[in-house]
Simulated scan of single mutants.
Amino acid sequence: MIDLQVRDEIGNILAHSAGVSWDESLVEIDRADLPMIAGLCPYADTIFNSWQRPMLLEELDRLPAERGPWVDRVRAMCRTAEEESHRYLWFVGD
């Protein structure tokens, strides 16, 4: 499981959500087509800033509907991050 967090610029956790259930289909994502999602790693942290979040959201829209509820959680956390400046969306691996 990759947890989702919204953090401010000094690292304070402002919001937390159950994240992405890692499965092999995420490994098979085409890096050329979905580079933001393909960059997720279950063993490391991945951070999206205000310039990268719109690209991530665009990629989420292109995923098949059967991907699961994690897609909606990521969208919700992106909205939380967009509420103020200097907020980052963190995918926290184990």
Rank of each mutant, 00 (worst) to 15 (best):
M1V: 15
D3A: 15
L4N: 05
L4V: 01
L4Y: 10
Q5P: 00
V6R: 07
R7N: 09
E9P: 05
I10F: 10
G11Q: 03
G11A: 06
N12G: 02
I13T: 14
L14V: 13
L14W: 06
L14K: 02
A15L: 01
H16P: 01
G19S: 06
G19N: 02
G19F: 05
S21A: 09
S21M: 13
W22F: 09
E24Q: 09
E24S: 13
E24H: 10
V27C: 08
V27K: 07
V27Q: 11
I29W: 08
D30F: 02
R31G: 05
R31V: 09
A32I: 10
A32C: 10
A32N: 12
A32E: 09
D33H: 07
D33P: 00
P35Q: 04
P35R: 05
P35H: 00
M36W: 04
M36P: 00
I37Q: 00
I37H: 01
A38V: 10
G39C: 15
G39Y: 04
G39S: 15
G39M: 13
C41N: 14
C41S: 14
C41L: 12
P42I: 03
P42L: 01
A44P: 02
A44N: 11
A44M: 09
D45Y: 03
D45R: 08
T46G: 01
I47K: 04
I47Q: 09
N49G: 08
S50Y: 01
S50T: 15
W51E: 15
Q52E: 15
P54V: 13
P54H: 04
M55Y: 08
M55E: 10
L57A: 07
L57W: 05
E59N: 03
E59T: 11
E59D: 05
L60K: 03
L60E: 03
D61G: 13
D61P: 04
D61T: 15
R62I: 05
P64V: 00
P64I: 00
A65I: 11
R67A: 12
P69E: 13
W70M: 12
V71D: 03
D72S: 12
D72H: 11
R73K: 12
C78Y: 04
C78T: 08
C78N: 03
C78E: 06
R79M: 13
R79I: 10
T80E: 14
E82G: 00
E84R: 15
E84M: 14
E84F: 09
H86T: 00
H86K: 11
H86S: 09
R87I: 14
R87H: 05
L89F: 02
L89N: 06
W90N: 05
W90T: 08
W90S: 01
F91H: 01
V92G: 00
V92D: 01
D94C: 05
D94V: 00
